[in-house]
Each structure stands twice: as structure tokens, then as C-alpha cells.
Design a protein around this nucleic acid. Structure first.
Lengths: 232, 232
DNA sequence: CGGGACGTTGATAACTTTCAACCGGGGTGG
DNA sequence: CCACCCCGGTTGAAAGTTATCAACGTCCCG
């Protein structure tokens, strides 16, 4: 996690992009920028909260640990999104961990400044409110899936979700470089089980593989597999 | 769900309680009050969003359905809390359902008015933001538990959580009248399995039963059972 | 008195994790 | 340059957990 020159692309930053114009100079003066290497941990649950992060490029997993070598990936943050905001509110301790999945550039502001932004900038607060509402919907949806959906369904859902978030490359593969381990953590199941389910999906011709890359072939059947009552 | 005279206890209402004083008359003029009988459904996921509810008395379960006769209870709302706010944001459709667990009195304001409150009242928006942040923390915590914790642990966790939310009666029992079915839906497991786990907990003397009522006996052991790394 | 909802229990089936072993490739140190 | 090691991927078998099914009991309400 190396501090670098500010190269924040203002128009793809949640903070800059949703703020009053007159507040932007303050942001630019205040924030710092870091480059985070693939795999590097940014903060861990239990760490005292210092600030909020905004993703410029790359991708970051937000996760909760369990048992030293088990975790659940709660969501991914990528360009234009933020993380660390769960540190707000009571406690002053991050309830989750964050690490770079793909080498990332992030902007950082400390909590005090962030809260000042909220005070000064009601419209920003409102935007953040909407952002949290969406996160909460996703979160509860995922909760229900973990409780009731089979692993195969969850894998299907995870893949669709990844494609929605990261898009596809020119040759049609999901545009993210994710280890199988992380995929498993995202689907909320073990490595081996996810692997087997992937195999089934391949032989049912619902997805295609090329090395680590994954391509969705039969989007509709995948959706149906996830028995999805689409109230996204 | 019967409309009744406004009997809102201002000091236990999230809306009234967190708002500017000058906005309160507008609220009082605008809101309506309903009495909801035990078991009655207030809205279902998929329904178009009409407004936000604030709980005055009683208790309401917020849940997601699955499969006609399965559901997952996401949280409970009781005095001083609100529900239906997940209807905010894009979509205009409730992503969750709500029903009274114990006969409840709730205040209701329509979305337009609620959003007007947010605009007029930055401090209220901020409070709501904090509320959502806490909800999100809870939600993600529960997500992790569903993914990694055993049913027994989840039952323990559910009971502790219920006691924290609803407190205890004079004779030490958790102060909520909840069907086993709902308890199971809250813990995210089947009826029968939860039943068996309750039996185990009883014979381990961690909890006590009296009819439907439940008393926690060995709080610490329950917590440990839930292997809880307490970053609440 | 009958019916239905809820509670209780056991047997069985299905699903998922766990464990253990193997493979192949990339990087490292000798 | 090569042998080795370690990591991530792959596979099979066994164990453990949880859901499902079926049956029965009980209480309350109509």
C-alpha cells in the first residue's frame, strides 16, 4: 500500500462526483492516493477506523473472516464505488476487512473530513443514503440466498452478479481475474464444492471456461437455476 | 390493518424524534396511524412502494419469502424503529415483506412526504444514514453466520439477539411472543432442526423453557457457542 | 365435537464439507 | 540449467450436518 501522487479521475469517484462543486477543491487538497498491490490487505475487521476509501481503478473485496482460513466475501468495490464506510457510526471499528483482488488505486480521506463532507453537503448525504439502501437490498437478498438456495444456485447467482458488476472482455469472458478460492468465498461455500458445481455448469453448457476465465453461455437458464424471483 | 386515531408517542418515533422541531407539525398533520393485528401482512415483496412505517408499539417482522412456505426473517422492527425504507431508491418496489408478529400500532407517511423530510432536514438524513449503517453491519454479520455457522450456533445467536432487542419479562423470559416457525425463519433453518437444537440447549442447561417462553441461562456459553468474535 | 394450526419425534435422504491424495506449472535456490 | 518445492487446481471417498418426510400428539377455536 504505497502512497502515490493524486491521480484521482474525478468523474469516476463517488466522493467527487456526488459533491457540491465548491467542496471539490477541499477534497482535492485533503485526500491522499494509494496504490494497493494485488492481494494486499487494506484493513481488517477489528482495526480502528481511520478513514473512507474510494476506488479509482482495480477491484477490492470486502469480506468477513471466519476461522483463520475461511471467509465470506460480502461485496466487491470497483471504479466509482467506495468502501470502509461501514466504519461510520458507533464503535469506531471496522466490522469488515478489505483487500485488493486486482491491483487498485484508491483515494482516501479520514473520517473527520468525510463526516464534515456529510454535514456540509446534504445532497451528498442523500446520495450516500441511496447507495446504502441499494447495498442493504443486495445484502438481504444474499442473506436469503445463503439460507435457502443450493450451492449450485449460489454459484450461478455469483457468476451473474460478477458479470453484471465487471462486464465482459472482447471475447466474452467475465472481466475479472478472481481466484477460485475467492469465487468460493463469494458464493459462500467451500472451494471443492464450488469447483464441482462449476464442472456441472460446464457440462450442462451453461458456462464456458478458458483457463481461469469464465464465460456465461445460457444466461436465462442460469437465472432460472437460481430460481430467481427477480425483485432485484 | 385498520386506520385509527393518531396516538403516536412522539418521543418513541424515529421520524418525530430525529427531526427538526419546526418540521414536527407537518408530520403530525400528514401521517396516519394504523393498528395491525397479529399475523397481518403489511406489504409483500414486489408490491409497489407507497410509504414508510414507524413502529409505535408491538413488533413487526421484516422478511423475504422463498418457495411459498419458506422465508427468512431479516430483522424485527419494534418501538422507535422504522420499516419499509428499503423501498427507497430505484425500483419503486418493496424488496421485502413485513407482517406483525405481535399486534402493532404504526405510523405511516407516504414516500413523497418522507423524501421531502429528507430534503428539508439534513440532520434527519444523517440519522437515517447512521441507522442504515448499523442495519448493514447487522446484515453482513448475519450473512457470515448463515454461511459459516452451524444451526445450533445460529439458534444461540438468534436467541441472544432477540433478548437484546426485546429485553426480558419480570420472570426472566425473553419478552416476545414468537412462534417456533418464526424463530426458525429468523435463525435461517427448518422448523424441525431448530426444535432439536433447542432441545440440546435445554439439556445443556444453556436455556430454559416454559411453554413457548424462552429464558437464557448461560449467556456466556451461548455466546461462545456462536464462536463469536465480538465486533458487533 | 371436529378441524386446523402448532408442536414433537424418528427415520431417511440429500447435500455439503472435510480429508487426503495427486497433478502441473512457475519460481527459486543450488 | 535443473531439481525441488509450493501453490493452486482437481478428484475421490467418507463423514457430518441439515432438510425432508411421515406420523402422531395437543391445544384452542369455532
Amino acid at each position: 500500500m504505497k502512497r502515490i501522487q493524486n491521480i484521482c479521475a474525478v468523474d469516476s469517484c463517488f466522493l467527487c462526483n456526488n459533491c457540491l462543486d465548491e467542496w471539490k477543491p477541499a477534497i482535492l487538497a485533503h485526500k491522499t492516493t494509494y496504490k494497493i498491490k494485488k492481494g494486499e490487505i487494506i484493513f481488517k475487521e477489528g482495526d480502528p477506523v481511520t478513514g473512507i476509501y474510494f476506488v479509482n481503478s482495480g477491484s477490492v473485496k470486502v469480506y468477513k473472516k471466519w476461522d483463520k482460513d475461511k471467509e465470506l466475501i460480502v461485496r466487491f468495490a470497483r471504479q466509482g464505488s467506495l468502501f470502509g464506510h461501514r466504519g461510520l457510526g458507533i464503535g469506531g471499528i471496522y466490522p469488515i476487512s478489505a483487500a485488493a483482488v486486482e491491483t487498485a488505486v484508491v483515494c482516501y480521506v479520514d473520517v473527520a473530513f468525510f463526516e464534515a463532507s456529510l454535514k456540509v453537503n446534504p445532497d451528498f448525504t442523500y446520495k450516500l443514503l441511496m447507495f446504502l439502501t441499494e447495498e442493504l437490498k443486495q445484502s438481504e437478498r444474499k442473506m436469503r440466498n445463503l439460507a435457502h438456495m443450493s450451492v449450485k444456485g449460489r454459484v450461478a447467482e455469483a457468476l451473474i452478479s460478477l458479470q453484471n458488476q465487471f462486464g465482459i472482455t472482447d471475447d466474452g469472458f467475465i472481466n475479472i481475474d478472481l481466484s477460485r478460492q475467492d469465487l468460493a468465498s463469494y458464493a459462500g461455500a467451500t472451494y471443492e464444492t464450488v469447483f464441482r458445481m462449476m464442472n456441472e455448469l460446464v457440462s450442462e453448457k451453461l458456462i464456458g471456461l478458458s483457463g481461469k476465465s469464465i464465460r456465461l453461455i445460457h444466461h436465462n437458464k442460469l437465472l432460472k437455476l437460481a430460481q430467481d424471483v427477480v425483485f432485484l
